[in-house]
């Protein structure tokens, strides 16, 4: 029987949740025994190759590329999980949600104290994904099956959730593993 497949990605996040996944220490050897990794920054596969059993999403949606990737994950993943506060509530990037987008651009590219931009133009290369009006939690864009809060969720939280799911159970976490910080 083929091993279950896991795919992971970081949208508008800091890779801290992926670091926490690596923080399961030697249990990562068990994990490699138990699952195959599809698209993930861990193996540097850039596109989802097939049907995936568990998708882990780090980060919220701040630009159109994030949305595209999130939709791709939703299409390919049987179970999709929001991992970490950014995926669940926008996190630190969502601090910009209280500031108009134009003002964010002006501060970042024109008026910021460390900006050097002689052309005085906001970058508009078509290669650069357009920002969304706000940073959105993943569950406001697609259906998310489970949420693992934390900044980042602890290695124990991620491990407990993965083990439960691989055993065909819903990840019901004990009190000490549900934390928002």
């Amino acid at each position: 029987m083929a091993k279950p497949k896991v795919a992971t990605t970081s949208l508008c996040g800091c890779f801290g949740c992926h670091m926490s996944l690596l923080d399961i220490d030697d249990r990562i050897l068990q994990l490699v025994e138990l699952v195959d990794f599809d698209r993930s920054p861990i193996n540097d596969i850039k596109e989802i190759e097939g049907q995936v059993d568990i998708g882990l999403i780090e980060g919220g949606c701040c630009n159109e590329e994030n949305l595209k990737v999130l939709h791709e994950f939703r299409r390919h993943c049987k179970i999709l999980i929001s991992v970490g506060d950014c995926a669940i509530n926008g996190g630190i990037p969502a601090l910009r949600n209280m500031v108009p987008l134009e003002e964010c651009y002006r501060e970042a590219y024109l008026n910021g104290p460390t900006v050097v931009n002689p052309a005085g133009k906001v970058p508009d290369d078509p290669e650069i994904p357009l920002l969304l009006d706000k940073v959105y939690p993943c569950h406001e864009a697609v259906k998310i099956d489970y949420h693992l809060p934390g900044c980042p969720p602890s290695a124990d939280t991620l491990w407990a959730a993965l083990v439960a799911l691989l055993n065909g159970k819903a990840p019901e976490l004990p009190y000490e593993l549900v934390k928002y910080d």
Binding site: C151, V178, D181
Partner: peptide
């Protein structure tokens, strides 16, 4: 409510209620 950098995190009653009720999102 940005718990991840809030000084009150861990001692906050609002957060504690959410923990008690097992709210993940």
């Amino acid at each position: 409510h940005f718990c991840m950098f809030c000084e009150k995190s861990g001692n906050c009653e609002l957060q504690a209620l959410a923990y008690r009720f097992g709210i993940t999102a």
